[in-house]
């Protein structure tokens, strides 16, 4: 743990801009700047990843670290900043972790097989608006990994559940529905994520508000898939 003194921070600055200011000073003082992941800085790429005062992405609800602003802190506060901590996300340097385990879960089945050129006319299959809307809600996951960082078991169930729900709600996703859920859950175990014990911390910190009930849906899909498999 290192403590840095940061001065002259505007309440309108984002959390990452506060770190930019600190890093500029560290570089000029001949110290090592703090490495952290970030890219779009508008809450959609999922790259930023910090536990702030013990909470993944900090104190504001439904907010990524990059969209957290300093107006939510008081002058003089001491703020604890840590990287994501989970067995499946090894720390690379400072606040930077390796999240390739998420890509591995998608590789195992987080897709609909539709090679380019093979698509039928888009209106050939209407999708009930209710299903389309729920699928969209699940599909808004940005893959940041806050759910894993917040989970006492380091489980990726909410991440996997979101993708399984998104694709499983679409008519296009039905042919691979069973193999998808079985393979993705296997990949999740293989990657070293922990098991889910329904703590619900994941949904609390999710910046996109992915609902907890999708995990129930995942479990139900999984049981059905195992039954169908026989």
């Amino acid at each position: 743990m290192v403590t840095y003194d940061v001065k002259d921070i505007s309440p309108d600055a984002s959390f990452l801009e506060m770190l930019d200011v600190l890093n500029e000073k560290l570089i000029l003082d001949g110290d090592d700047p703090i490495a952290f992941d970030h890219d779009c800085r508008e809450g959609i790429c999922g790259m930023c990843s910090m536990v702030i005062d013990g909470v993944a992405h900090g104190p504001e609800k439904a907010t990524t670290t990059c969209q957290l602003h300093m107006r939510h802190f008081s002058d003089g506060d001491v703020i604890d900043v840590e990287p994501w901590r989970a067995a499946a996300f090894p720390v690379i340097k400072d606040l930077v972790v390796d999240r390739t385990a998420f890509d591995k879960i998608i590789q195992a089945g987080g897709y609909i097989t539709a090679p380019t050129g093979a698509a039928p006319e888009a209106h050939a299959t209407p999708v009930p608006k209710k299903d389309a809307d729920l699928a969209f809600e699940a599909a808004t996951c940005i893959g940041c990994g806050a759910c894993v960082a917040a989970c006492p078991n380091g489980s990726s169930m909410l991440f996997t559940a979101a993708k399984v729900a998104h694709l499983g709600l679409m008519p296009q996703g039905q042919p691979e529905r069973d193999t998808r859920v079985i393979d993705m859950l296997q990949a999740q175990d293989d990657a070293g994520f922990g098991g889910c014990t329904n703590m619900g911390e994941c949904a609390q910190v999710c910046p996109k508000g992915i609902p907890l009930h999708l995990i129930g849906r995942l479990n139900s899909d999984y049981r059905k898939a195992l039954r169908n498999k026989g």
Partner: peptide
């Protein structure tokens, strides 16, 4: 192509 991949575009009530 995108619809075949399951991209959840906005839809009307008729689907």
């Amino acid at each position: 192509q995108c619809v075949a991949q399951g991209v959840p575009f906005a839809r009307e009530y008729g689907g």
